[in-house]
Design a protein around this nucleic acid. Structure first.
Length: 341
DNA sequence: AATCCGGGGAC
DNA sequence: GTCCCAGGATT
């Protein structure tokens, strides 16, 4: 009777688990659901290193779900600034208010799945990690580990169904939360995207990918399209130690975030170069920024006149600019202007 | 099934 | 520079 994959993995996890701010040690009673949920949402498509300072900040300002539910949405958006994928922050507030209304987090995967911002992965992760439910947790780490472990040759994303079935087959009834986190730790430290440290891997004896001689070719991925290059202009209008900031539309890129006014660039088209105020503009330089679907070259123009800008916005004091919650693109543009002094 | 949505770390 | 990451919502 040989050990199962989950036995081998959990034994490894008991001595090799990463210590993370949102994680309970192996076998300990779970972290409260609020912290598990918050960390899982922050970690969607985002690295552990990037999340840590945001998790610390959020849990200091809003220590529980009731506190977050009571927070103004704008403050949460500003606190999220720089982390990316801002619809996560908007959904975070909606979900917190729903949970507070319910009197606490639902404990089943199906109920969690109904909250905004909780998809298949996150609902399963919270159910398993916070509530000890058996749930099949499949993230990018698990996809890679499973594709190698079972030598799944079909390319992603088509292979998702097969991968999920295999993940289900090796998920234990007990300690499903530890098992999920162990798979993620294995994928982030041993069975990584660019390396397979099979000599250190607790699952090496079970791994078909390793047996095939070339585990690194797995998972096979469909090749992606080239990113378009876009250009646009952002406008710096300053008066009495304050800069004119607008709020971006509720849909599209950087939705709902504070920003410098710009000329309408998007991932699909260049900006038209048209300034929000007639008059004298001076080029301050160019900021380059990569998004998921386009690379942007953003010219920054500084206004030299004294006409009032049109439309809705606010004069934001320069000595509090760090509190404006500007997304990284506009924070870069602001640094460019201010560094020239 | 495709596409849209940020940002930064590792290499 | 390229690739990737504890994905979800929308179409």
């Amino acid at each position: 009777m040989s050990a199962t994959v989950s036995d081998l993995l959990l034994d490894w996890y008991d001595s090799h688990a990463r210590a993370l701010p949102w994680r309970a040690p192996p076998g300990a009673s779970p972290t409260d659901a609020y912290r598990v949920w918050l960390s899982e949402v922050m970690l969607q498509q985002t690295t552990v290193a990037a999340v840590k300072p945001y998790f610390t900040k959020f849990t200091e300002i809003w220590p529980d779900v009731q506190a977050l539910a009571a927070a103004p949405e704008d403050e949460v958006m500003a606190a999220w600034a720089g982390l990316g994928y801002y619809s996560r922050a908007r959904n975070l507030v909606k979900a917190a208010r729903a949970v507070a209304e319910m009197g606490g987090f639902p404990e089943t995967e199906a109920e969690l799945r109904k909250l905004p911002g909780l998809g298949e992965y996150t609902a399963a992760a919270v159910a398993a990690i916070a509530f000890g439910q058996r749930a099949v947790v499949v993230d990018a780490n698990v996809e890679r580990v499973v594709a190698r472990l079972f030598a799944i040759e079909q390319p992603l994303p088509g292979a998702r169904k097969a991968i999920r079935e295999k993940a289900d087959a090796i998920t234990p009834d007990k300690r499903a939360g530890d098992f999920a986190q162990a798979m993620m730790d294995l994928g982030s430290s041993i069975c990584t995207a660019r390396d397979a440290k099979c000599l250190l891997c607790p699952l090496a004896s079970k791994c078909e990918g390793r047996a095939s001689g070339d585990p690194l070719r797995l998972p096979v991925k469909a090749k992606k399209k080239a990113k378009p290059q876009r250009s646009g202009t952002a406008f710096w209008i300053e008066r009495d130690g304050a800069v004119w900031l607008i709020k971006r539309p509720g849909k599209g890129m950087l939705a709902g975030m504070r920003a410098l006014p710009d000329d309408g660039w998007s991932a699909r088209k260049d900006g038209d170069g048209e300034a929000p105020v007639e008059g004298a503009w001076k080029a301050a330089g160019v900021v380059r920024h990569g998004f998921t679907h386009a690379d942007l070259e953003l010219g920054v123009a500084v206004y030299a006149g004294d006409s009032k800008p049109q439309g809705t916005g606010e004069w934001w004091p320069l000595d509090r600019l760090d509190d404006a919650g500007l997304p990284t693109l506009f924070a870069k543009a602001a640094r460019l202007v201010l560094a020239a002094r």
